[in-house]
């Protein structure tokens, strides 16, 4: 199944949700701002890329995780995806669109607007990161609900949380020790693959 997280600009909330989904971000604590900024797509997407589906990675259940920006028209994305799926014979069970905008707070909106629209990155990025940290556990809950709906993650998703928390940035193995992965089925989780080249 293809799971597509979408939000206004595809730069903050959808990136965060996708990163939580893939275990790049932990579920039991709020990542530091350096951890957010280390994610290649966080606060990076430009307006001329809106509408493009970015492949973020494959989760341990084999679902492909994407994110996209659809500005203030979620209905366009949803209707178009549904229509195109109908035309090309893609079954509704093969994709799952998740609107993350419901978890976006005012700080995220303001920071995102300053950083992406007005290019005041020095002010906007820390602000939007603070907003993302404030909304973090709501996004974790959303991702958990998505995982429980799509299935394929085993009977007790709580068990995952302990392993997800071991992830770190900057190390040689960002997904924890390889021995842990063998024990817990993490061998199915490939590192997130980003089409996006880091811009700054």
């Amino acid at each position: 199944m293809k799971i597509i997280y979408h939000c206004y600009g595809g730069a903050h909330s959808s990136v965060t949700a996708a990163a939580i989904h893939l275990g790049i971000f932990p579920e039991d604590r709020i990542p530091s701002r350096e951890e957010f900024w280390a994610v290649p797509l966080y606060d990076r997407q430009e307006a001329d890329e809106h509408g493009h589906f970015f492949f973020v990675g494959k989760d341990k259940a084999g679902h492909e995780v994407f994110l996209t920006a659809r500005r203030s028209h979620p209905e366009i994305l949803e209707n178009m995806f549904e229509s195109l799926a109908g035309i090309f014979g893609v079954t509704p069970d093969d994709y799952y669109l998740v609107n993350v905008m419901g978890k976006v707070n005012l700080t995220m909106k303001l920071g995102g607007f300053l950083s992406r629209r007005w290019r005041f990155i020095r002010v906007g990025r820390p602000l939007v990161t603070r907003g993302t940290q404030a909304a973090y556990f709501q996004m974790v809950k959303l991702v958990q609900r998505v995982k429980s709906k799509v299935g394929g993650y085993g009977e007790n998703p709580i068990l995952q949380r302990q392993h997800l928390s071991t992830c770190c940035f900057g190390g040689s193995d960002p997904y924890g020790k390889s021995a842990d992965r063998e024990k817990t089925g993490w061998q199915f989780l490939e590192p997130a693959v980003f089409e996006f080249q880091r811009k700054r």
Binding site: N79, E82, P92, Y96, N99, M101, G102, R145
Partner: peptide, 11 residues
């Protein structure tokens, strides 16, 4: 499938 949580956008 579509996961909607708020009434954002009008269809």
């Amino acid at each position: 499938m579509n996961f909607k949580e708020n009434g954002e956008g009008q269809d």
